[in-house]
Structure formats: C-alpha cells, structure tokens
Amino acid sequence: MSNYDERRALEGLQKLDSQAISAVYDQYYPEVFRYVYYRLSDQAVAEDIASDVFVRLLEAVQNRRGPQSNIKGWLISTASHAVTDHLRQRYRRPVEAISETHMDHQPGPPIEFDLREQNRSVQQAYAQLTPEQQHVLALRFGEGYSLEETASHMKKNVNAVKALQFRALAALQRQIGEVPHE
C-alpha cells in the first residue's frame, strides 16, 4: 500500500504492465466495490460493476481518455455512471423486488432481525432518491469522504455539496417515513 505511486501506476496502465494494473486494482477495488454496493445493496452486481469499472479504466487509458492524475476520482465517477446505467436498465426491465431477494432473511435473534428490517427500509428509501442524492450520500456516508473530498469527486464546490447533502438527507427521511413497514 505504501509503495503505491499514482504516477507510476498511470504509466504502468499505459504500458499495460501487469504489476501496475494489479497494484491499481488492489489499491482501489475495495473502495469502488463499497461505493457500488452502497448504491445498489447487491453483492453480486456490485462485484460485477466494480470489476467492469477497472476494465473501463484500462480501455480509457489505452484510448487516452483516462485519468491524468486522480485515478480514484475517475474510478468513482465511472462507477457512479455505471450504477446509473444499471438502475436505468433495471427500471426498463424490472425484476421482482431485487432488494428483497438479496436481503438476508435467515432467522436470527430479534434485535438483529429488527436491524435488518431497518436497513431494508433505509435501502428502499435510499433507492427512491435521485442519482445525485444517492451519489452524495454514498460518498459521504458509504465511503466516509470529507465534504471537500466529496466536492472534488462530484466536481462541485463545497457549498453546493452542503446544500445537496441537506436535501438528500431530507429526502431520505421523507422516504423512510413512506416505506411501508411489514
């Protein structure tokens, strides 16, 4: 981890150097995966999309459309677009209650069951937000990025992100209140 050098990594990606590619993957895959999982709450889909994002990185670098300095920012941004695309496709071809199928329904203690139910409600509410609102919450609360870092990833100024996160949280609260409880 400490040996990772962003500049060298970019050069290695350009040369399709296997070691450099592996280093970039090891460095950023967990963050990309967490981001996608936060957005979709689907382990398998998150793994696939995160993996796709790195292939796109490789292709973009070869086509000279890749990142010039900030690989992580490029990856998260691409992951955000990939999730949006996925959601759009899912909207066009809806499958039955995806969140239901991927929730853990194994029997357990009542407290854990309540927690899972609460998470499910939040996830359902979260899914009702706009992509931008989902994005800002995923960065701030899923990835734990600072306000400034989130602003950097979203290519917005800090004040805009402050307003956006306020509206996103307000919308989430509203949606949680509207999610039917079983």
Binding site: Y37, Q43, E47, L172
Partner: peptide
C-alpha cells in the same frame, strides 16, 4: 435530517470478498 444521516451511516458497506477480488483481477489481467 440528522436521524436520516445516522441511518445513512448505518447502511452496510462491506468489504468485497477475496474470491470476488481474485476473479475481478484475473478478468482485468
């Protein structure tokens, strides 16, 4: 707003499985 923030923070964001990472890296290479 803050209650929503607490719930948003509580949403799970797990680490990927080792197997998933291995598969993804193999595909990439």
């Amino acid at each position: 707003i803050l209650e929503a923030a607490q719930q948003a923070r509580a949403m799970p964001a797990p680490m990927p499985s080792t197997e998933a990472m291995r598969r993804g890296k193999a595909r990439l290479l």
